[in-house]
Design a binder for these strands. Structure first.
Length: 271
DNA sequence: AACGGATGTGTAATCCAAGC
DNA sequence: GCTTGGATTACACATCCGTT
């Protein structure tokens, strides 16, 4: 026909574009393709922003539901839930958010509509580097908070070479907007009983971060336990630790006068 | 000091009903 | 008809307050 683009527009797409729900359903495709975001609540927020609607708008939820199971057999499934999340509840409170990504058809449609290659789904990328789906979800949520706070994400799960030839892999490398310094952030969900490996972990983190340890936990329990671990592992060394937890940060709650997201700040004596 | 309810709060998904 | 807020269900955490 008369298609100018390299990729022809399938007939069902034209049908889709003529339907009422196209505006909202396509917004989900655009947002997911552009940003690679995976968590359902985050996708809803971005859709609402894009369409200038309230994030509480139920039609946004319905749009995602439709994409995941479209009515009528003429439409392919464009979005699917990623399986593998075994825990129902989140250790930072509430339920685990659904994790979604574009299907093959969803990726093709994004390319047809925008002419661009969709960004790879953040969960699909990060799960390769993390121990569990739950830890991956927490990493994504922590990243979103850091970005909201003005931090610039510089890397995720990138290996840092240490002096002894070993490597250390911090979960997130970010640029602090206030100080202009690059910080290493460790994302923690639970505390292992293996004291020896934990001590080695914090020693390596200490060296890799030049003694500035940022740890983002799921809840207060974890935060306190990690504080204990670090203090034990690094006793006698000069280090600064900055700890916080996701559950505590809900509803915009911040620490002290400086409004920092880091609830627990402990500075070693500097000379 | 350690455990265990009870109470209160928070997040997420779903459904219903009232507004616009 | 489209949008939005409230209620419900389901899970989880924090704090308080007893008992063991």
């Amino acid at each position: 026909e008369e298609s100018r683009d390299l990729t022809p527009v399938p007939d069902w797409v034209k049908t889709w574009q003529s339907t009422k729900n196209y505006e909202k359903t396509s917004a989900a495709i655009f947002v997911m393709g552009e940003m690679g975001i995976a968590l359902r609540p985050s996708i809803i927020k971005q859709m609402a922003k894009r369409l200038s609607l309230s994030a509480a708008n139920k039609n946004l939820d319905e749009a995602l539901n439709w994409l995941m199971s479209p009515e009528g057999n003429e439409f392919p499934i464009l979005v699917e839930q990623i399986s593998g999340v075994v825990e129902q509840g989140s250790s930072s409170g509430g339920n685990q958010p659904e994790v979604l990504h574009l299907t093959r058809d969803g990726q093709v449609v994004y390319q047809v509509l925008t002419g661009k290659i969709p960004k790879e789904n953040e969960f699909d990328v990060l799960i390769r580097h993390h121990s569990s789906p739950e830890h991956t979800i927490l990493n994504i949520q922590v990243g979103e908070i850091l970005v909201d706070e003005g931090y610039k994400i510089r890397g995720r799960a990138q290996a840092i070479n240490l002096s002894d030839g070993e490597t250390y892999i911090p979960d997130i490398i970010a640029l602090d907007p206030k100080t202009g310094e690059v910080i290493f952030v460790e994302v923690e969900r639970d505390v292992s009983k293996d004291q020896v490996s934990r001590k080695i972990k914090w020693m390596k983190f200490y060296e890799a971060s030049n003694g500035n340890l940022y740890v983002f936990c799921d809840n207060l329990n974890c935060q306190r336990a990690i504080q204990g671990e670090i203090n034990l592992a690094l006793s006698g060394l000069n280090y600064n630790s900055f700890l916080t937890n996701l559950h505590g940060l809900r509803n915009g709650k911040r620490a002290g006068k400086d409004g920092s997201i880091w609830f627990s700040q402990r500075r070693g004596n500097e000379k």
